[in-house]
């Protein structure tokens, strides 16, 4: 099973073009001594192609978040290596933006919405005068212009997540790492944000790695879906999503291929 997965993921096709990101035989365990040692991720080999929308699904607690944090550089693998455009990842970088699930904790509560977005620009040393038009553009792109001078605590969850996405876009990343970004939002807001993120990533041909436990969300958004099995997490399957773009909340979700993928993924995860 594992051999098969590796072939599908890191096959000859990906080797021809340099992948955006790759993980090679990555494992992660916590705890120093052997009795407490806990293996979280086992032998993950994975390529993220430049410009693709890759979704990773798995049961909760399966190590999806840890995998994403390794891609960002916030967590270092115990063995194996993570590469970004051929370079070994040694720590976090402005080029890889990570959007956290708990948006309320990831925003600076003492800064306004505009101030939170500007943080990314300040960090790269941009002059305040140059920041303003960029912040204004991102505010309107994410539909939060009217909230510009409000504080995160005054906003709804969906709005706060929009602010976080805007801040990540402000750092002009080469890849967007999203950790169950819409998991805590209500269904309507979630669908609206799914479509917005599809438009955003399509516009800029942005590489996205998107973690979710929602199978339908993964199929709806992704070019490919990687399925993680639990404890220790390993890749059990990778599927190519052959659904046409632009995708539509109604017609895409009613497409027989959509339902077939859903059927297959559901079966895979139930077994594990």
């Amino acid at each position: 099973m594992q051999v098969k997965a590796k072939q599908t993921v890191g096959g000859g096709k990906a080797a021809a073009t340099t992948p955006g990101m790759s993980m090679y035989q990555v494992s992660l365990s916590y705890g120093a001594s052997s009795p407490e040692r806990r293996l979280i991720l086992e032998n993950i080999t994975l390529d993220v192609r430049e410009g693709e929308f890759l979704c990773i699904v798995g049961p909760s607690g399966s190590g999806k978040t840890t995998l994403l944090r390794m891609l960002s550089g916030l967590v270092k693998p115990t063995t194996g290596e993570v590469r970004f455009r051929g370079q070994v990842v040694s720590g976090p970088s402005r080029e890889r933006a990570i959007i956290f699930q708990d948006y309320s904790k990831a925003l600076l509560p003492w800064r306004t919405v505009a101030g939170n977005i500007a943080l990314s620009l300040e960090a790269e040393g941009m002059r305040p005068a140059d920041q303003q038009p960029i912040v204004a553009a991102l505010l309107s792109k994410m539909g939060i212009v009217r909230a510009a001078n409000q504080f995160p605590g005054q906003l709804s969850g969906g709005m706060q997540q929009r602010v976080q996405i805007a801040r990540c876009l402000a750092q002009r990343p080469k890849i967007l790492l999203m950790d169950e970004p819409f998991g805590a939002l209500d269904a309507m807001t979630r669908q609206a944000l799914q479509d917005e993120i599809l438009i955003l990533s399509g516009e800029q041909r942005m590489t996205v790695v998107f973690i979710t436990h929602d199978l339908e969300e993964a199929i709806y958004l992704g070019d490919r879906v990687v399925v993680l099995g639990d404890t220790p997490a390993r890749i059990i399957e990778t599927i190519d999503v052959d659904l046409p773009r632009p995708r539509d909340q109604l017609t895409t979700r009613e497409d027989p291929r959509f339902l077939a993928h859903r059927h297959r993924l559901f079966g895979l995860l139930r077994r594990h």
Binding site: G73, P92, L108, E122, A123
Partner: peptide, 28 residues
Amino acid sequence: EPRLLEVADTLEMNFVERLRKIILPAAF
């Protein structure tokens, strides 16, 4: 909140920036 320090990490802030923009206001 450790999340805020991770935000500083991904933005590659140096220590002074981190102190001024994240740590001191958060601990204010």
